Measured scan of single mutants.
Amino acid sequence: SKDAAQYVYDEAQKGVTQVTVNGVTFKFDNWQKLLKYAQKLLN
């Protein structure tokens, strides 16, 4: 959902490398990768 994507995006902006959405945890090597993933979700 857009809300989940926005949440992931906001978390990535904080510099975190993992985020949990609806009980599913996504882990990334660095926050830039998390940010890229979030941007994909938002598009």
Rank of each mutant, 00 (worst) to 15 (best):
Y9M: 09
T17L: 11
K36C: 12
Q39H: 02
Q39C: 15
K40E: 03
Q18F: 13
K27D: 10
V16T: 03
T25N: 04
D3Y: 03
E11P: 11
K33N: 05
T17N: 06
F28G: 01
T20F: 07
V19H: 06
D3H: 06
A5Y: 06
D10V: 13
N22Q: 09
D29F: 15
K40Q: 04
L41F: 03
L35N: 00
L35Q: 01
N30Y: 08
Q39F: 12
V16E: 04
Q18G: 07
V21N: 05
Q18A: 07
V21Q: 05
V8A: 06
G23T: 11
K2I: 08
V24C: 14
A4T: 03
N30H: 10
Y9E: 13
L34D: 00
D3F: 11
D29H: 13
V8D: 14
L42G: 00
E11G: 06
Q6H: 08
L42V: 01
D29M: 13
D3W: 09
Q18K: 08
T20D: 03
N22K: 09
L35T: 00
D29S: 14
A4S: 06
A4K: 09
Q39P: 00
K14A: 11
F26Y: 07
A38W: 09
K27T: 08
N43M: 09
T25Y: 08
V21C: 12
D29Y: 14
N43T: 03
F26R: 05
K14N: 11
Q13K: 08
S1M: 11
T20I: 06
L41G: 00
A5W: 13
V8E: 13
V21Y: 02
V19Y: 02
V19G: 07
Q6Y: 04
A5D: 08
T17Q: 06
D3E: 03
S1W: 14
F26N: 02
A4V: 03
Q39A: 06
Q32T: 05
Y9P: 14
S1C: 15
T17D: 07
D10E: 11
T17M: 07
Y37W: 08
Q39W: 14
G15F: 12
S1Y: 10
V8T: 07
K33P: 01
Q18V: 08
F28A: 03
G23N: 02
Q13E: 09
T25P: 08
D10M: 13
A4N: 10
T20V: 14
K2F: 12
N43I: 05
G15P: 04
D29P: 13
Y9D: 14
A12N: 06
E11D: 12
A38L: 13
V21A: 11
V19T: 03
K2C: 15
Y9Q: 11
A38V: 12
A38G: 01
K36F: 06
F28E: 01
T17E: 04
Q18W: 13
A5V: 05
K27W: 14
V16D: 02
A4C: 15
N43H: 04
A4Q: 07
K36I: 07
S1E: 12
A12S: 06
F26Q: 03
L41W: 04
A12Y: 08
T20K: 02
A38F: 11
A38R: 01
D10H: 05
T17W: 14
K27Q: 10
K36T: 04
N43R: 12
A38P: 00
L35E: 00
F26V: 02
Q13C: 15
W31F: 05
K40F: 04
G15C: 15
A12R: 05
V21P: 10
V21K: 13
Q32W: 12
F26I: 06
L41S: 00
K27G: 09
Q18Y: 09
Q13T: 10
Q18E: 05
